[in-house]
Amino acid sequence: MVGIVGYGAKIPRHRIKVEEIAKTWGADAPSYKKGLQLTEKSVPAPDVDTVTLSVEAARYALKRAGISGTEIGAVYVGSESHPYAVKPSGTIVAEAIGAVKDCHCADYEFACKAGSEAMFTCLGLAKSGYVKYSLAIGGDTSQGAPGDALEYSAAAGSAAFIMGAENVVAEVLYTHSYMSDTPDFWRREHEHYPQHGGRFTGEPAYFEHITGATKAILQKSGMKPQDFQFAVFHQPNGKFPMRVGKMLGFTKEQIVTGWLVPVLGNTYSGASPLGLTAILDIAKPGDMIMMCSYGSGAGSDSFVWKVTDRIKEVQNLCPKTRPQLDEHKIYVDYGTYAKFRKKILKNK
């Protein structure tokens, strides 16, 4: 049996409300809240970045796995906001959790599906027996240009998963990847903020790839949407995952547990992985979970997970995902947010 041995999530404490951003730009907050179906988003403080969030998530994953960092043989960090342009995030994470020095390590990038890329690779390593335990992380401190629609949703958070073949809490039964060259969202070298194709990010991009990957894995597994207790799809806003779920035959009840975006925002590479952690927090043995990521550029990775009896032993060992969203919150105004995100031009 191969799958998730331990998992963890980390969400920063600071938040900004849609009204606060809309007030700054003279925009209509109710329209944005209705259009994006989100009310607030997480904000990373200046001392928080993809690496710090990933280290905390990884420490929780280790605790749930019941292993030490020295037992980790591979570390992969998927993000589009690695703190360095040249220097891996993974080495810092590995050093911080003690997974040094006999360890394979790499940073992944594939827009918002870099995290599920890392998960896919780690599952392969576990299945082949090449590495006993490997660590996959999806996390971001997402960028959104001032005044752009993305600014209302670009958020921060990280999810970590330890994959292995012993003491599994969620077995992977099937995977499927689906991709094409679709330029719906990009950021060129040396650009601070990403560009996007507006409505082009919808039908030919997000919906085409998520439906493609999910239909293929349903066919591969011979399963139907009704066979799953939970489903989580990439969540760039509140509307898209609910709509794509409905298109595929999933109900709101199946999606709502991992649907974090209304109060978290879009955590890019962390989006569907964080949704999976929220599901694992409350899942029961035998529950089936459909997961499908989406990364612009573009592609989707889908996974069918089956929760094992061991889940009950690990759920309460670390802070769960929903309580991190609902408690410990510190609301900031736009000025503080702009300072935190380095949106203010200063004299050198």
Partner: peptide
């Protein structure tokens, strides 16, 4: 270079505004 290390954070619950 970016220097990382340890900081303490309050282990409190609730909501504040700054």
């Amino acid at each position: 270079v970016l220097s990382y290390g340890y900081k303490a954070v309050p282990a409190i619950q609730g909501v504040t505004t700054v």
